[in-house]
């Protein structure tokens, strides 16, 4: 990227960061509240009766999953809402008439989503400290998985916003796809607890790999192959980026 593209990239990124910080009550606080509730209900009240899982208390075991749950939903929502809103009020035209390339536009939005993901991840980890003892086994794997997952879901949010014609269409995917996938992605349980056929089905859920790889980074325990998961996650992120780039270049949903 040349200097001109760097400035354009940073302008979009900075605008995205300022946007979610300006609406912190909607963007950051809800995850903090729901995470606290999860810890009170599942970690404390129910978790004490469950006992330990793979040598960890239940509150410790669900912490990585709760972080990923918040990261995935926030990254997705950040980009889908912001981009669709720009389409809706048409200020996306400011960027479309400018020389900013599709790569720059896409990277700007994704970085905004990733930074919100990282911030919300930090908030959830901070809250978990009030409820359980946190150990960090592999910090860089944690960081890598958060960045890859939030980038991937930012791209999905971007593609959703490109196709969306109204506000309902940007809430359909989070409600009917994202939420079931995350809740069934091993946040609250180890897939070893499932009957064998459900274990097989679970392996088709991409969120399972993100949650477990992140759990490996945090607790050193995983139900899936960590290296394989990171490679697949990276490949899917690259392919999704290419798809979003092609759609943006063609002007799907933004140019008639």
């Amino acid at each position: 990227m040349n200097a001109q593209n760097w400035i354009a990239y940073w302008t979009i990124t900075e605008r995205e960061i300022r946007r979610f910080l300006r609406i912190w009550g909607q963007s950051l606080v809800p995850s903090a509240i729901t995470t606290s509730l999860y810890f009170i209900v599942f970690g404390g009240l129910i978790g004490n009766r469950i006992g330990s899982l793979h040598g960890f208390s239940y509150a410790q075991y669900i912490t990585p999953g709760l972080v990923m749950l918040a990261v995935i939903t926030n990254s997705y929502t950040n980009v889908s809402t912001s981009f669709y809103l720009s389409k809706f009020i048409r200020n996306i035209e400011e960027v479309l008439v400018s020389p900013a390339t599709s790569t720059v536009i896409l990277l700007g939005y994704i970085t905004g989503g990733v930074i919100r993901g990282l911030l919300i991840g930090a908030v959830v980890i901070l809250i978990s400290l009030f409820f359980t003892h946190i150990v960090i086994a592999h910090f860089f794997i944690m960081l890598l998985v958060i960045v890859l997952s939030s980038a991937l879901f930012s791209i999905f949010g971007f593609i959703n916003a490109l196709y969306a014609d109204n506000f309902d269409q940007i809430s359909i995917i989070p409600t009917f796809v994202l939420t079931p996938l995350t809740y069934l992605g091993g946040i609250f349980y180890s897939i070893e607890m499932l009957p064998s056929h459900w274990q097989i089905v679970s392996h088709f859920n991409p969120v399972l790999y993100m949650v477990n790889t992140f759990r490996y980074g945090m607790l050193g325990q995983s139900d899936v192959n960590v290296v394989g998961s990171i490679i697949v996650l990276s490949l899917v992120a690259v392919l999704s980026f290419c798809l979003a780039w092609i759609l943006l270049e063609k002007g799907v949903g933004i140019r008639t």
Binding site: N2, W10, T11, R15, E94, S98, P99
Partner: peptide
């Protein structure tokens, strides 16, 4: 205005 300039790569 600052954002618009940014999209055009202006410092």
């Amino acid at each position: 205005l600052l954002q618009q300039a940014g999209y055009y790569g202006i410092s």
